[in-house]
Write a protein that binds this DNA or RNA. Sequence first.
DNA 1: AATGATATCAACCGCGACCTT
DNA 2: AAAGGTCGCGGTTGATATCAT
Length: 387
Amino acid sequence: MGRSPCCDKIGLKKGPWTPEEDQKLLAYIEEHGHGSWRNLPAKAGLQRCGKSCRLRWTNYLRPDIKRGKFSLQEEQAIIQLHALLGNRWSAIATHLPKRTDNEIKNYWNTHLKKRLTKMGIDPVTHKPRNDALLSSEGQSKNAANISHMAQWESARLEAEARLVRESKLRSHSFQQQLSPQSYIPGTTSVHPPRSFDALKAWNGGWSKSSEGNGGTLSTGIGGDLESPTSTLTFSENAPPIMISANMGENSVPLIEFVGTSGSSETGIIKDESEHDWKGMANSNHLPENSVSFSSDFQDMTISMEGTWSPESLRTNSSHVHAGNVMEEGFTSLLLSDSTEQNLSESGKHSENSGGSGGGSGYYEDNKNYWNSIFNLVNSSPANSPMF
DNA sequence: AATGATATCAACCGCGACCTT
DNA sequence: AAAGGTCGCGGTTGATATCAT
């Protein structure tokens, strides 16, 4: 409902913008702010529809846009965020603050997608096309279930992106009111979006021990029984993997990835919260408000409490690809494609990947994959551009 | 140099979500 | 609650640039 009339229906100009038009639009917005896009063209003396003006501004004229070649870090960010978020370019763009969603989308379609395809990796699923690395059906299903975690995170990122947008908008309007001429690109007066502090803890939580046959990973704060928790556990024939999304005091989903290696060498990484999930995993003592479902993963449990509401999980629109988390090595592999560039500076993400093989490194690879993504989103608050 | 193929990217289009009346 | 208005998103197109023959 309520679709605005198309430009050609009201005889407005279309196609490439002239420098004069750019100047008019720029001058008007610098002086008045964009206000209502619909009314802007008439006020600015442009024979364009508001939509066209908005697009020109957001994708080209905005002063806080970084143009030119994408850096290695940016490429890496795009690939990893795409693995997590799918084609949600605006959400991805939130973490590359000076890039527009359109630019990222174009770059993906013209460069990165092709590069992935060329390497035999499905750019949609981020899985190898022949599925060679997912040797068993169980692992595929494993990946599918891990995707629930990605969905949660995806939904959270989406909400975060929305907040950032709104904050920026408010900030920008405020600055325009104060001094239209003093607009400083890329600056905001608002607090950065909540970062994934817990995920940082999560990153630091990996360690090894010789205890038991599984590996666990946690935020290190999961022991807070008071906090709302979302816990997802599952297991299959292989030693169990457990993912727990734990809500912190500020309703920040804290993701615990309690992974296990097929190899006893990997051992358990534990912390004070371990007893919580262990109890659940080994018994039927599920917390209240939990949802259990089974698949070929024999046990999956999600507990939803506190403000971690289903409404916040707009998973229906999430394009999270089941297999992506299982293919940690591919991003690094891709970025290590020496035919394109020397990527030595990206060692941060690839140093531990150890290729994409299975075996004992399999879950270690997953860990690294998520570590890199969470590090990425953690380090990219909107007003502190990472690039 | 001419021509065709391919790559790039700005811009458009249609849809859905959100807001206002 | 329903209808209309506006905005933003993602997919796609088409003009231009670049490369290959």
